[in-house]
Design a protein around this nucleic acid. Sequence first.
DNA 1: GCATCTTAGTGTACAACATACACTAATAAC
DNA 2: GTTATTAGTGTATGTTGTACACTAAGATGC
Lengths: 238, 238
Amino acid sequence: MTSPGEPGPGTFTYAYPRPALTVDCVVFGLDVDDLKVLLIQRRLEPHQHMWALPGGFVRLDETLPDAARRELAEESGITDVYLEQLYTFGALDRDPRERVVTVAYYALAKLSDHRIRAATDAERVAWFALDGLPRLAFDHAKIVERAIERLRGKVRYAPVGFELLPPRFTLTQLQRLYEIILMQPLDKRNFRKKLLSMDLLIETDEVEQGVRHRAARLYRFDKKKYEKLTRQGFSFAI
Amino acid sequence: MTSPGEPGPGTFTYAYPRPALTVDCVVFGLDVDDLKVLLIQRRLEPHQHMWALPGGFVRLDETLPDAARRELAEESGITDVYLEQLYTFGALDRDPRERVVTVAYYALAKLSDHRIRAATDAERVAWFALDGLPRLAFDHAKIVERAIERLRGKVRYAPVGFELLPPRFTLTQLQRLYEIILMQPLDKRNFRKKLLSMDLLIETDEVEQGVRHRAARLYRFDKKKYEKLTRQGFSFAI
DNA sequence: GCATCTTAGTGTACAACATACACTAATAAC
DNA sequence: GTTATTAGTGTATGTTGTACACTAAGATGC
C-alpha cells in the first residue's frame, strides 16, 4: 500500500484516506513567580506568524514520544525534559487544511537549563506566562488548558514538581512551586512537616548561594527511594 | 493531496507516508462478583481467530469518540456506554502489517442492558473475567492493563462506578462494585457513612425485588447535584 | 561591630476525618 | 413460628489536617 521514496516528499498511496498525525508539546517552565509555557511563532501557513505549540508530523520510524522530543528539539532547542502523554485531539475542523489528529504531550523543563532558539518551522520562540498567553493557532488554547488541568491534578499525587526545579533546591522554592501551580498559598510549617514526613527529601550539607539574607539549606529529591516505595504501594500526596 | 472516491477502497495519495489510525475500546462490565471485559474474536488476518479489543480504523468524517462508538456498535452491538479516552499507543511494531497508531478508549457498560452479538470483523463476542483473559492480539493486553489501572484510579475520585450499575441500586451493590474494582474489602458502616455524607444519593421509595431475604432500599445517584457541586470545587472521593 | 533587614526554621492545640468493630430488625422461605 | 439471610445502625479511638507566631541566622550598610 505504500510506495517507496524515503526522505523528502514523494507519493504514498493507500486504499482508504488517512488523517494526518501530529504531536504537539505543552512545555511548562517555572519562573521566579509564575509558570510559563513555551510557544513558537509559526513561519508557515496555516496561521502564519501566529503563536502555537511546538509540534509536527509523526514519522513512520519514530514513536510518539520520540516525535515529540524531536519536534521540540528542532523548533526550540529544548532537550532533556520530563515528557508525558496528555490527550489526543481529533476534532474534524481543528486544522483548516485537512483532517489532522494530534497526540498532545506535556513537558516540564527547568527554565534556567535551556537556551531556547528558533529553528525549522519556528520564526521565534518564547516563554509566556500562563495568564498572558497570546491568541493561539488551531485548537492549541484548548490543549494548553487541558495541560494545566492535568499538571494541577498530577502535582498533588505525584512528585513531578521536582522536574521544574534544579536538582538541589530549598524548601521555600519547593513551596513556591506548589503555590504557583496550585494558585493558592500554603502554610510554611504544615508544608514542611508534610514533605519532610514522607522522608523523600535528602538534606545536603550545602546552602543556597547569592542571597542577601540567611541562606536556606538545599535538599534533593530521593527518586530511587520514591520508586521503591511506590512499588510497595506508597502514594505521594500534597 | 487527497484524491476522491468516497465509500469503499480507492486511491489516496499523500506527499509523506502516514501511519494508519485506529481506535480500540476496553469495555468493562460488572458481573455478580467480578469485573468483565468485552472481547471479540477476529475474523480476519492478522491474528485471525485471536481474541482482541473491539476497534477499527478512524474515518475522516468522524471524531475519535464517534469512531470508537461506531466500531463498538458494529462489532458487538453495544451502544450507550460511558466512554472516555484512555491513552494513545504508537509502538513501531504493534501491528505486523504496517505502522498503526491506536487511540484507546475505555467504556463502562451495564452488563444486563446489552445483548451482545458479533458482526462485521468479529467472529464471536464475549465477556471475559479480568483474571481469565485469553491471549490477546497486538498489544491489547497492555491496553487492557492500562485501562484497569485507570479505572482503579478514577473510581476513587470520580463517581464513574455508577455507570456500571442500573439507575437504581442498593448500597450493598454499590459497595460490592467498589470492592470488586479496588480488590479490597470495605467496611459496611464506614462505606455507608461516607457515601451518604456526600449527600449525592437519593433514597427512593422502592426496594429491590426478587431476593429471598429482607429487601434493601434502592437509591439513585444525583448526577445534576454532583455536576453543580463539582463546578463549586467539590471533589468526590472514596 | 552594631543595628537593621530579610528570610530560615521550628511546635502545639484543636478540629476533622478515617478506622475498627457487633448487634438488632426485617423479610422470605419453609 | 422457626430458620436463614441480609439490612441497617453508632460509638470510641487513632490519625491526619489546620491554624497560628516567634526566635535564629546571616547579609548589608553604617
